[in-house]
């Protein structure tokens, strides 16, 4: 395998958690809910996936634990913002703070343990294609899931009746309510889907990216995923493009550090965050474009009238 392929492989590994967390948040935001707790759900997923894997010896149980913990954790957010109509921004922050705290506490005794890496699933024949084979068909389950989820979300949002309903809830909850759509239930499900995806993204971190547990191991990826949704202007396939772009940026800084070019490592480490800001500026300076794409009811609370 050439060096180019090796680099691409690491880019894919770095991009997968971003894609996963962002595609989940995209669905949540399409339903009109802004959940800023992605970082918290992701780190919970990472911790629970690692712990479950260590306990059972099976990384597949770990994946399930990651998904379940993310979804359950997002229910807290859902209860506060949807049932108790609490402020979504503040509640999302609370979810992140709590997630970082709880994951640090439950994962404490697992720090430093070497984990079990999620095995590759090799597709026969396809994996022998030169260049593409090793990149696309000799990957782990979570990578395949990430691509399938993006395709599935695209189909769901734009080709299915339920997806149309979800988008209508996100654009005008009052109209959707008047049409008999259960706004609150739709949003609960969307929030939980976002949580499950963030949890899966976390599982990727502690089972594939670096198979171990370290406190705060999500290191801001949840926030980058939030920026990715804006970057993708709420369209699923653009998440993949954006995710791989960000993956490439974060990997390029690692390589630059390894080859010791004359830039201090801290500046290189800051690159993904700076790139996020630059991309946000490029995307959002056109006010009209942003207005067209943003779900119109994003961040607005809904109390059914009777």
């Amino acid at each position: 395998m050439g060096i180019f392929e090796a680099i691409l492989l690491t880019v894919i590994t770095a991009a997968t958690p971003l894609v996963l967390a962002a595609i989940g948040e995209l669905v949540t935001e399409r339903s009109g809910v802004l959940n800023l707790g992605v970082e918290g759900m992701m780190v919970m997923g990472a911790a629970c996936a690692f712990i479950a894997t260590q306990q059972t010896g099976s990384p597949y149980v770990g994946i399930l634990a990651g998904i379940a913990s993310g979804a359950l954790f997002s229910l807290l957010f859902g209860f506060l913002t949807l049932t108790l109509v609490a402020n979504q921004v503040a509640t999302g922050l609370a979810l992140t703070i709590l997630g970082l705290g709880v994951s640090g506490m439950i994962g404490e005794s697992y720090v430093g343990q070497s984990g079990i890496k999620l095995p590759q699933i090799v597709f026969p024949i396809l994996s022998d294609i030169p260049f593409l084979g090793p990149l696309l068909f000799r990957q782990d389950l979570i990578f395949y899931l990430s691509i399938a989820l993006v395709a599935g979300v695209h189909w769901f949002l734009f080709r299915s009746r339920a997806g149309l309903k979800l988008r209508s809830v996100g654009d005008s909850h009052s109209s959707a309510h008047a049409l008999g759509i259960n706004v609150i239930r739709t949003r609960y499900l969307a929030v939980m889907f976002g949580g499950a995806c963030a949890g899966l993204a976390g599982a990727q971190l502690s089972l594939v990216y670096t198979p171990q547990w370290a406190e705060n191991m999500s290191a801001g990826r949840g926030w980058i995923a939030l920026a990715l949704v804006v970057f993708a202007s709420w369209r699923p396939w653009r998440i993949v493009a954006g995710g791989y772009l960000f993956g490439a940026v974060s990997i390029s800084q690692l390589y630059a550090q390894a080859f010791g070019i004359g830039i201090p490592s801290q500046f290189l480490s800051a690159l993904p965050y700076l790139a996020t800001i630059v991309v946000l500026i490029l995307i959002s300076h056109n006010r009209r474009m942003t207005l067209i794409n943003t779900p119109a009811a994003l961040g607005k609370a809904f109390v059914p009238d009777r």
């Binding site: 506060l80 108790l84 503040a90 703070i97 709590l98 705290g101």
Partner: peptide, 15 residues
């Protein structure tokens, strides 16, 4: 570690 948990819980209940 309980510090962060306490702080997170507190914000949840306040909200």
């Amino acid at each position: 570690k309980p510090i962060r948990v306490f702080q997170g819980l507190l914000l949840f209940f306040v909200l």
